[in-house]
Design a protein around this nucleic acid. Structure first.
Length: 280
DNA sequence: TAAAATGTTGGGTA
DNA sequence: ATACCCAACATTTT
């Protein structure tokens, strides 16, 4: 479900505490773990996982790409929500939901519950977070990520923008929604080859990605379907899920195509493809 | 009923 | 090595 802004929102709420996601988990000790779907564990079995994590305290909560990163007293716990994951803190006395597959019991009598309907999520427990986040591309919102740097990265590849931007080893954090939104902001066609962009187009893409992410974080992410509630970004989508609706910029009807097995939304007018601009 | 859904990975091919 | 396609993972919803 979540992309960078949603994961950032969840990490912040777990760190700072909120009515929606419960009190902060920072400072709490993990006293026990319930694993009802052991395949949540990326490596190793439940016994080794329990033995290793129980007794460690949570020193901080952050984010890298789409991973939520828990800085523990000895190791690092990384959770990837994939398509349907959700993290909430509840009192241990509250009944667990059917899809609360992995629960971390905390010292203050609360539980951090990894709810994951589709069971695609993953839990990593490692000594060095680089073991997990090492392959990821740069953080798009990091101060040292510049338009110049993005331009160099794009020029070094020969791929269509959409699938390239979805590649987490190229750039960390973009998913299907924010990629479409960023490309619309940048007025670039999803099929545009990465090594064909002018400096002005690189600049537009850079600003499009950062602006889409910043706005998403500002609105606490997007709420879609029955999963992940609380965000408001879904009300500001310019193209995602807006097939046959007018482009907010030029009123041309938004098109939906399938690209690399993912639904792709764009404005054929604002995001025209050079050499193919006569198609309807 | 078939199709689609905010994600990733592994296999095969060129 | 790079690019591209597909299947798989598991479940719910339209």
């Amino acid at each position: 479900m979540p992309e960078l802004p949603e994961v950032e929102t969840i990490a912040r709420e777990l760190r700072e505490g909120s009515g929606r996601r419960g009190p902060t988990v920072v400072g709490q000790t993990i006293t026990a773990v319930t694993l009802r779907w052991p395949r949540h564990l990326a490596d190793g079995g439940p016994r080794a996982f329990r033995r290793r994590i129980v007794g460690q305290s949570i020193r901080g909560v952050g984010r890298r790409g789409k991973y939520i990163v828990f800085d523990l007293s000895r190791d690092t716990l990384l959770i990837h929500l994939r398509m349907s994951g959700e993290l909430r803190v509840a009192s241990a006395t509250e009944p667990r939901s059917p899809h609360d597959h992995t629960c971390f019991c905390l010292g203050n009598g609360s539980e951090m519950r990894f709810n994951d309907t589709r069971k695609f999520g993953r839990v990593h427990l490692v000594a060095d977070p680089e073991e997990v986040t090492g392959p990821l591309g740069p953080e798009p919102l990091a101060p040292d990520f510049t338009a110049r740097k993005l331009g160099g990265m794009l020029a070094a590849r020969k791929r269509a923008l959409k699938p390239l931007l979805l590649d987490q080893t190229f750039l960390a954090g973009l998913g299907n929604i924010y990629t479409d939104e960023a490309l619309h902001r940048a007025r670039l066609h999803p099929l545009r080859r990465s090594d064909s962009l002018t400096p002005a187009e690189v600049s537009r893409l850079y600003r499009g990605i950062r602006a889409a992410f910043r706005r998403g974080i500002q609105l606490n992410g997007a709420s879609l379907d029955w999963v992940y509630q609380g965000g408001g970004m879904q009300n500001e989508f310019r193209v995602y899920g807006r097939e046959k609706k007018p482009c907010p910029r030029c009123r041309t009807l938004i098109q939906k195509i399938t690209l690399g097995q993912r639904s792709t939304h764009f404005c054929p007018q604002c995001q025209s493809l050079p050499g193919a601009k006569y198609e309807t």
